[in-house]
Amino acid sequence: MNIKSCLTKALPFVLLAAAPGLVLFGAGIRSTSHDFSGRSWNSSREVCVVCHTPHSAKPSASLLWNRDMTSAVFTLYQSPTINHTPGQPDGASKLCLSCHDGTIAIDRFGSRTGGTAYVGWTNLRTDLTDDHPVSFVYDSAMAAAAKTLKDPAVANSGLGGTISQDMLRDGKLQCVSCHNPHDNTNYFFLRKSNAGSALCLTCHNL
């Protein structure tokens, strides 16, 4: 195997194991790649403001969202075995994609327009055919039809409650089903560790 790619993949885990208290990988948003307080374009030096604002939030989203929403039309995931009807991203997924589709600058928040700083290696583009499907209802009926999915109303998420309670938003699977944008403890902002594919196996009964 290519030693370099092996090392770059393993390194964060080595560090994590060696220094659990390391700020970079600790709980919370500070010093993660979603902490933009140190960026030259962020004169307020605040963390939350790039995404949320206590006042004058954008009317297009809840969560006191402080950013313009992407207006991209996305190409959606398709396969012969899915049970949902694919639809355009909505809810929290659209919030993520308003940076991660690469169409809206990170430094375009609040009353700012334009902007020059865009996501780099995390650009998922507007073609979502190569991404896990999002923005569809995941309920008991789907689980019964699919047979290889756990019943979200009953199955334990491992995060305190059921899948529905902890991972779905308005009954839908979204980016935030797998990601918690405020906490990088599990790397890649994952909601839980994916060692042994534990994240995937929370919902997939395989």
Binding site: C6, K9, A10, F13, Q78, S79, P80, L124, D127, T129, D130, D131, H132, C178, N194, A195, G196, S197, C200, L201, H204
Partner: peptide, 20 residues
């Protein structure tokens, strides 16, 4: 190296796009 199971076949993102 990440001790995952699914990843050897399925990526969460930036997978192969195989139409249909």
């Amino acid at each position: 190296s990440r001790r995952e199971v699914c990843i050897v076949c399925h990526a969460s993102h930036k997978a192969q796009t195989v139409p249909g």
